[in-house]
Structures are given as C-alpha cells and as structure tokens.
Design a protein around this nucleic acid. Structure first.
Lengths: 324, 324
DNA sequence: AGCGGTCACGTGACCGTTCACGACAATGCT
DNA sequence: AGCATTGTCGTGAACGGTCACGTGACCGCT
C-alpha cells in the first residue's frame, strides 16, 4: 500500500503508450491526440499518479523559491511584513517557505539548516549575528532585515528610525513634555538602536531620557510600564520599542489612573494598523511594511541575479493619531 | 556569471577527487579523510557550490512539504491559523509553502496550479467549491478548512458553530435581550452556516433574528452596523460573522451613541486575542485556532500515510469577556 | 509510383545527487 | 612472506522526469 511511488512509466504501461506521451499529456505540450491524452489521464488518475516535483524541477530549473524566516508570526509587525513579502514574491512567481522561529535561537538555526536544501535564497529577521548565520546557510544568498549595515557577503535592509524618533521626541517636547521615558525591547538582548536614537534625540533637547526593557508583548509592555511609573511617577511622555509594547503600556497606565494622552502621551513604533482599533488610537513611528517587504524581495532578486545588493534603507515617519 | 550552475562534478574536478567524495564531504557520511574533506569544502566554497535541492530530493525522498492556502494573512483569524499550522508542521519536520490569495478566486486557482508541482499536499481555506479545486490540484491530497462535509476524495475540517451560537443567543436572551441581529459575511457569497445557526437558535427562543451582510473588515462591520441600527434603532444584541466585523460594529455603535454592552451587547466569532485589546473586550465564540491548525496538519499526515481521513470537527465555545 | 509534409508517438541523452558495490593501497597478523 | 583487514576513494546504476530529436503512418499531390 505505502509501497513504491507510481512513476510516469507505470502510467505509460497502463495506458499502453510510452512515457514521453504521458509527459506530453501532463504538460499539455506539443502534439498529442485528444483520445490518447484522455486515456493517459484516465489511467494516471486510476493509479494515483502525480509527477515528482523533484524530477521535474531537476530538468527545468525555472521555479525559484525563497525562505522567509521570522521570529513570531503572531506579532502583527511580522504579520504585515510577511504579507507584504508574500505579495511581492507572488508577483515574481516565486514560492515562499515560511518559518516561524518562535523567538528561539535554536529554532532559528534549525530552520536555516533545513531550509538550505529547499530554497534558492533566504530573507529574514534574525537574532543571531551574521557570522553565525553565514556559517549555517553555506553561502546561500541571504537578506537580513533590520540590520544597520551590509557586508561583502551579505545584504541587509536597514530600518532608520533616527529621523522618526527625533520627530517623535520633538513632538512631545513641543507639547511641553520633558519627563519622557522609553520602553525598549528586553530580555538579555543589548539595547536597541532605537534606544540610542531616543537618548540622542533627548540630549539634543537638553533632556535626559530613561529607558527600561520590556518583553515584546502586551503583557510585557504592561509590566514594564508599571515599573516605569513606579520609578518615575511624574512621567509625561513615553516612547516604546514597538506598538505591541505601547498598547500594553497604555492599558496599564490607564489602570494606574493616568489619562492618555493628557497625563502621559505614548508613541509607539511600527505604525501597525492594529493601532487604529485601540482607544485612544496609537500615535506611532510608522514603518511602511509593504515597502519593507517589497524591498526585501527586490534585494533577493538582485542577489539571485548575481549583482551584490548591499544596503537598502526604509525610513519610518511619525504618524500622529490619538495617543500623543 | 549567470552561466551554468556549478555542479558536484565541478567541485570534484577542482579538488582533484571523484564526485562521490564530494558527496561524502557534504553529507559527512561514511569514510573520508579529514584532509580530503577540508580540501573539498574549500574548493566548494570557492566555486560557490550548493547542492541542488531537486537532485537531492530526487534520490532521498524524505522531505515533505505542504502548501498552505489562505485568503488573507492580515485577517487575524488566518494569521492565528497559519501560525498554528506552521508550528504543527515544524514539529513533523515539514516545510510549509504559504500562499495568500488576497481574497481573489483567480489567485486561489493560480496558487493551486503552481503549487501542484511543489508540494506533497495542500491544506487551505478555499472559496471555490470542491469540484473546481479538485480539478486543478490533480489528485493531490487536500484538506479543506471550514467545510461542513467531507467526500470520498477530500478531507475537511468542520467548524461547528452551532452549539456556540446557541449559547451566545441564550446568553443574550437570559440578559433580557430580544431584539437581536446578526452581521453575516457579505459580498455575493451565499448566507453562511453561522447565519443559519443564528436564525435557528433565535427560533428556539421564539424570536426572529434579522441578518445583513458585511464586508470582512473593520470598516465593513462599521458600515453594516450603521445600516442595521438605522433599520432597527432598538437593537439590543448583536452577533457577527467574525471578530473583525464585531470590532467595527462596536466602534460605530459607540459613535452613534450606544453604550456597549449596556444598550447593545455584541458577540463576535473567532475569539481572537485581538479581542482583548479593544474596549470593551470582545465577547466571542472562540475557535481554538491552535487546535484547528494542528488538526489540519494531522489530517494531512493521515492523507499522506494513505489512510483516508474524512471529517474532523472543532467546536468553538462562547467566551465571555466584556462586550456581552 | 514516387515524393514531401504533417501528425502522433517513441528513443536516447541529460538534469545533479546519493547509494551499493568493488578497487586499491596501507596496515596488521601469523 | 603471505593473507586477511581496514580505511579511502572511484565506478555504475538508479531516482523520475523533460527535451531535442528521430521515425513511421498517413495524407495529398504531381
């Protein structure tokens, strides 16, 4: 039953033709008699024959497929990026293998390992440093999302939050706010670039920013906000590493009796459409995720064509809604 | 440059060994001298050699990959399902090719067409009827999510909303509400099963339900709610086809001066985690998307093993939060 | 009758790997 | 020294298709 795979020759034998004729029938190529074709398709269906994707791909090397590696599909930011990349890939007729590494370094490397023999290129948002990644992909074309720099051997897409964060701080300061904090990403990861941009921007206004880490989830944002408000009860402005954290922070702030934005303005980062359905609507530094996804695919295309692609940059901009 | 692919023989020639030895080096199989291996890997890297996934797959037919077809990744319900399926597939070591058909029948068929030669099985949430789908997948194992029935040749996962919807209606009635409406999905699609379950449940209480269609988006929910309230200003309870519609409906209801849930209670369908971040939190008939995704993969596994899998069912349950 | 042109189909080569097997040198043993 | 053993490596054959040809039947034409 689970015996041998049924091959094109089995079908040929059953239909009383040569295997080439079967091939013709399946690819409705060239000249083949209508009756013969029907007969072939008939016995093919009876035997449950389906052409091997490997054998087929081996000879006509047209289809390209890429691996998309993200840390967490349920994080709306990555959902949007994935959707955009999927769309861009489809327009080129590419296939996309999606891997969700569940924020796990181990799984990230695993995914890259198994991916290697399945795709022509990889694009992803990785946690591991480039050197480690490169070791495991064995020279496969790779595009890194969210890396500040590119190297001789790798291509990346830089998210330059500097201008947006500067605009956000300026927006708060212009509103008369001076006690501004930030909820950075947390865990044991090093401080993000976004935190640096924030601190720099504060300094430009002669202010001192205070930053703490938060898990990248609503609860994480809520918890971090609680300790932030405990340490700085007079906080009147907040930036966050991303929108999800911001939403958690707002909720906790409200629970603790703050009015948002009156008592404490909150500005997220990502500009997810999710920010529209919360109350107040979330002001955020908005990344054009469609552009980001399209750019990623474009870079892959360049790499696949042999031209080194280097560094591409997206520059998110402040998008004022209700929370600041 | 964009010339021929570099094959295992090229590497062999460069390293001065046979191609078999190169193969050994790459799969760190059996007996090979350490020095030889290093030398092989070296020239492989110089030439930029990477084994062909097709040739490799052809001979060791171990890797299985499946296609996951969904209408819209940005719809949080499908995001959750996809994430769950991805996870379940990973646990089996399967690869997942994801296709977002953008709610487009044309693209759905396109996706299935190109998928055919790339995957071993397909699971998806399709709009087209089974007969059409079957025609284009050419006998590939297929699992249909959200179909009420299974057939001899296809397998499906049924979402039995009946009990949940009955509970929801009972919940509203117990609350003294009698003027209950429903926002079904819209477009030119036929009324959903959910609508039928709703009308039946209402009838059981001796009530008459009124249902109108809505686009599956926040805006769609808002628009439909506006016309619903215009036609029935005294509406005091609402069910919706899904949570996204419910969120739009709540927003519009509030804009039109209704208090939710006091004046009009709203119950969604899907039970997305999204429902926790809106105010009030959304009461909903909750589908266990993790179970749904896992079940889908499980059915695929059965199909792949040769055992017909038939019909599986998930039964969502009323999950009371704040909006009803 | 002989010829060229279609149509429908079959033959041989090839795609890039892995696997089973055999060859061969170096080594160990008696 | 003779022989079995071990460690490395090479050779031939799949794996399941597609593609460029070659071939024969059949047709109409001169």
């Amino acid at each position: 039953m689970a015996g041998k795979r049924v091959t094109i020759r089995d079908v040929a034998r059953a239909a009383g033709v040569s295997y080439q004729t079967v091939s013709r029938a399946f690819n409705d190529k060239g000249e083949i008699n209508g009756d013969t074709k029907r007969r072939v398709m008939e016995s093919a269906r009876e035997l449950g024959y389906r052409p091997s994707r490997f054998a087929r791909g081996l000879v006509r090397q047209d289809t390209t497929s890429i691996g998309l590696v993200i840390p967490d599909l349920l994080n709306p930011f990555f959902t949007e990026v994935a959707a955009a990349a999927l769309d861009a890939a489809r327009q080129r007729g590419w296939h996309v293998l999606l891997y969700d590494t569940a924020d796990d370094r181990e799984l990230e490397l695993d995914a890259l390992g198994v991916i290697g023999s399945q795709v022509d290129a990889v694009v992803g948002y990785f946690y591991e440093p480039v050197e480690i990644i490169e070791k495991v992909v064995h020279g496969m074309p790779t595009v890194y999302i969210g890396r500040d720099r590119a190297g001789a051997t790798f291509t990346s897409i830089h998210i330059d939050g500097g201008p947006g964060i500067r605009a956000a701080v300026a927006h708060l300061v212009a509103d008369g706010r001076h006690r501004i904090g930030m909820l950075d990403h947390g865990g044991n990861r090093p401080p993000s670039s976004r935190r640096r941009w924030f601190l720099d921007a504060m300094r430009e206004h002669g202010l001192t920013g205070v930053a703490v880490g938060a898990d990248q989830s609503i609860d994480g944002g809520a918890r971090a906000m609680a300790s932030m408000l405990e340490a700085h009860p007079d906080l009147d402005g907040l930036l966050t590493y991303n929108d999800v954290i911001a939403i958690g922070a707002i909720r906790r702030a409200v629970q603790l009796g703050r009015r948002v934005p009156q008592d404490c303005a909150v500005i997220g980062f990502d500009g997810l459409s999710l920010g529209e359905i919360v109350e107040p609507q979330l002001t955020s530094i908005r990344i054009d995720t469609r552009q980001l996804g399209a750019l990623a695919i474009e870079q892959v295309a360049k790499l696949l064509a042999g031209e080194p692609a280097g560094l591409a940059t997206v520059t998110p901009a402040l998008h004022v809604r209700g929370s600041a």
